[in-house]
Design a protein around this nucleic acid. Structure first.
Lengths: 187, 187
DNA sequence: CGAAGCATGTAATAGGTTACATGATTAT
DNA sequence: ATAATCATGTAACCTATTACATGCTTCG
């Protein structure tokens, strides 16, 4: 049982889904391909943490809908209070910062414009998701309390938006420096 | 040549260092252990991108001081304008958000307090580094222009502080929700 | 007509972590 | 005393990506 396994279990605790759905859902927090998820699911099924039912579909491939077992829920609750590993990030664009000074002005500007675009897109997407979640909340009458399964999605969405905002602000701040002639000093 | 190789090259373009120093310097942007860095350095030396001189030290182990070659600088400049891969992040604490609703109030609070502490520490560290950099800048008389080797460190530090600020704010926002009784809804 | 989405899986490879190995000094 | 810092390297293992494999539908 590695961290990704627990993440999948956590998603299954919210609602039953297929491996494919889990792969899509976990992306914002943990990038994993389907080739990593399917074997984990099979392994967790063998150890009784999850179970599945095969569902035949017309005009689409058959699917396996996984759900968490009692044993799985216990495992999750044991993992939750454990001290979490420090976040790991690998960001190619940030590595480029170390040698920005040997790039031309056009390349430098493009680097930041590309990143700006990336996070602007993400922000849009996350905002739409948040609006959707808030709409569903009002529809059901239930408020987003800590003890409701969608609370996690809610705080994660809030954080994702804040993060995108920060990245956008940072890009604009640097872009502003490029324009305001501060860059001309060493050229 | 993978992304980490280019990152090491980028650091060496700023100043010559040992593998050990590179390992420490690259941490904020790309988490890598020495066991990964030494073989890469040896490989880049064999292909002529970097070179090294052995320096004997008294009361410390001998070291190899690596520096970038012309060939290495060309490779860096070719990498810079390439479209950067999207940032990868793996954050165990965020995975836990999905099953927060099955944790007790004390565990939930501890989770956020631990993260708050982590980022408060980082913020302190980054602020100290920024103050140091700004001090060195004033001492040298040279402003932090885009074309100076320390510009990258500067923008990276600014971003690290902004990021830590965001994480802290998020934790405090959630912690506030826990206290204000919003959590009592589903309990 | 080709690309993308749904849906599952395996195999090969690359990337990254932990452990093994050594050894002196300095701080707690 | 024990841990941490400096300093380098290798081996074993785990994690993650890319490629291979299949197949039908819908959208551009």
């Amino acid at each position: 049982m590695n961290t990704l396994s627990y993440g999948l279990l956590a998603l299954l605790a919210q609602e039953s889904c297929t491996g494919y759905e889990l792969m899509l859902k976990i992306q914002p927090v943990w990038q994993a391909k389907h080739s990593q998820i399917y074997p984990i699911l099979a392994k967790m099924e063998r150890s009784g943490l999850v179970q599945f039912v095969s569902v035949a579909q017309k005009e689409k491939p058959d699917k396996k809908v996984y759900s968490i077992t009692e044993k799985g829920t216990s495992a999750l609750q044991a993992w939750l209070p454990d001290l979490s590993a420090e976040p790991v990030k690998r960001d190619e664009m940030l590595l480029k910062m170390y040698c920005l000074w040997l790039a031309d002005a056009a390349t430098t500007e493009r680097l930041f414009r590309e990143r700006l675009k990336l996070y602007a897109k993400r922000m849009e997407k996350f905002r739409a998701s948040l609006a959707e979640l808030e709409g569903a909340e009002q529809g059901s009458g239930k408020p987003l309390g800590v003890r409701t399964p969608s609370f996690g999605k809610y705080v994660l969405l809030k954080r994702a938006i804040d993060h995108a905002r920060m990245e956008i602000d940072w890009c604009e701040w640097v872009l502003g420096m490029l324009k305001s002639g501060i860059d001309s000093s060493g050229a």
